[in-house]
Design a protein around this nucleic acid. Sequence first.
DNA 1: TATGAATGAGAATTCATTCAT
DNA 2: CATGAATGAATTCTCATTCAT
Lengths: 209, 209, 209, 209
Amino acid sequence: MPLRTAIVTKLDDLNRQDRRRARTRSRLLAAAKRLLATRGLHGTKIADIAAAADVGTGTFYLYFPTKDALFADLVRETALAAKDAMDVARAQHQDPVERARVGGATFFRFAAENRDVFKILFGHSAHFDALLREVHQIFIADIEQDFAAGVAAGAFRDLPPAFAAQAIVGMLTQVTSWWIDRQDVSIEEITSMTHRMLTQGTTVQGERA
Amino acid sequence: MPLRTAIVTKLDDLNRQDRRRARTRSRLLAAAKRLLATRGLHGTKIADIAAAADVGTGTFYLYFPTKDALFADLVRETALAAKDAMDVARAQHQDPVERARVGGATFFRFAAENRDVFKILFGHSAHFDALLREVHQIFIADIEQDFAAGVAAGAFRDLPPAFAAQAIVGMLTQVTSWWIDRQDVSIEEITSMTHRMLTQGTTVQGERA
Amino acid sequence: MPLRTAIVTKLDDLNRQDRRRARTRSRLLAAAKRLLATRGLHGTKIADIAAAADVGTGTFYLYFPTKDALFADLVRETALAAKDAMDVARAQHQDPVERARVGGATFFRFAAENRDVFKILFGHSAHFDALLREVHQIFIADIEQDFAAGVAAGAFRDLPPAFAAQAIVGMLTQVTSWWIDRQDVSIEEITSMTHRMLTQGTTVQGERA
Amino acid sequence: MPLRTAIVTKLDDLNRQDRRRARTRSRLLAAAKRLLATRGLHGTKIADIAAAADVGTGTFYLYFPTKDALFADLVRETALAAKDAMDVARAQHQDPVERARVGGATFFRFAAENRDVFKILFGHSAHFDALLREVHQIFIADIEQDFAAGVAAGAFRDLPPAFAAQAIVGMLTQVTSWWIDRQDVSIEEITSMTHRMLTQGTTVQGERA
DNA sequence: TATGAATGAGAATTCATTCAT
DNA sequence: CATGAATGAATTCTCATTCAT
């Protein structure tokens, strides 16, 4: 065999190997995505992932050092892909409000196209889903009712109360979660800022409809 | 022993038993609250909770069938207490906006007074919490920056961008989480409603400052 | 109160106490009998027995030192009662064969009247009942078939094969069980004696029909 | 590597794996056999079996879901092996009586060669085995005495009373155990059949000595 | 490289028994 | 006497990770 051919063959082999590795890796990720979305991190065993990806248990460790590492890779890759999509969309606009709008729209669209991972990312990790929903519901029911009354009274905008309640609870809980281990912001400030933001919105009055 | 005395004694016994049981139960809940807040659910062993409550391991099982069950009770009881506090506060007012304000304020105050449980609720101790924060941060950083630019440009209200970003992400993610298993709302509607709510707020323009 | 009356009262009290104790004891035994027969020794918890007897858990220990002790009492009392019944029946007869007959008849009658305890005693203790039956069945099926063929060929007496197979297996297994940790009898002797006993019976030929 | 070789290697691997699994499984069974025979089912811990088989604790669970399952497999496999041996022996003969004889002889021989498992089967190691023996003894003592008297009186064949008592009790108890959950046979029939079988044996009178 | 049997530390869970009331 | 809450030693079982083939 001529030297040149040998080298080319060797390169081909390397490429084939690489492609093979990449394929196995994504099969593992895809299998994990499926299982994690339904069973949660704790409920998903490495052996299950390997079996679902149709590789041996040990093979898993040739691609990921631990289960957590795979999980982290999965989550990070998806988050970065979402961010990229949002960046691309926002780059089309200068206006801050417009940028915010397309950012949000892209986020939602991306979520729709990646339900599995988003369930892991933002939906709560399977095991306590039911509980968290149940607890959220306690607050949401009240807010929904109050919001509907406010709409009827002409005080609140005409948004579906079920939607508004979710949005409000989302803001309250995230802000709480953020604030809870900070010492530098007083609760009064948090209360007042959240109230302004919820009632009046982010945009300056009159500037926009 | 006269009959009357005997009956009273028996009733006393029942009450004593009941009180004793109630005491042990709350000691377990209190101990769990402490441990879960710092070590997370996975990191807290049942034996640890029992030890911290100063009871035997087996005693735990006289009150809760599993660790998850205790966790669920803890979360539920706290949520209901928060709801009660909010109900009391809201009952003082008729005006929908005012009711919303005191509701929120009470929620935040309650969170401040029950940091331990809220830390558990928001998973500030979970195993992969660091990862979820990291990922959230990816989105928040962008939004914060954009929001700051919008404030500078006079488009957005003068709210701290760090706060606003949290509030926005909270709303987006909760709405996503809510919508993700629903078929009956289109993503365009979600996008548009969320945008209106975020930019213009809940209250009808002009009616309020 | 006159002395005499006081003494009588005291005696009455003692008797009442005794009767009360006896009653509680039999309620515990009766409850245990019921539970043990269905769930087996291992599957029956002391707390269950106490609850079924409608007494407190601790009360159990005022009557029996351990679970095994109750079990032993139950079994021994029943066995001795059976033995007594058999003794009474046998005492009516001089003839060895007749004594054997009424002994067996009484044993069967007693078993019929004390199914629960007999299930514990001779039926195999619940947990492995199914397995032991399954295994017995392996042998019994073969023997039953062979026995039926032997009856058809005029070699064996006209007994129901299903019955005969049970009887044969019972003899084989009990003899095996008895012999298995003895060194003083050869297996050839066992084989030959068992065969003689099974084929020719216990009674001397010709003497009886 | 030529395709043929590759395939052969893969097959070899599969066989190797299979053989390895089979080896581990029998080591576990052998270890269990040893321990169960001496310590009984309850007294034998899974960790003990694994240790005795020189494998890790977890390995046990790769082969048997529970201790009971291993026990069941052990018993079943032994019973089937015994049945096979008996089948082979019986196949040599046409005559029903002869078939019965070699069947019994083979059963006994098999028991002698598999004392360990038979000890487990007959519970010679169970927790309350001592109790059951004690109780059996109550009946056996009487029967033994009566049988000896019957032999002396010339009514019963000259069989060792200790042996005969075991054989009789075995038949009685097995028949009882079989009959105890049946509704379709009267106790009088059972009594009479058992008596005929015990006294006259299975073979037709006069036809054989 | 791929495999899957083997590992064993670690956690959950049970329940006979005690004992303060 | 009666009670049933409390105990904790003892066991079972899981599953991430290793490694010989």
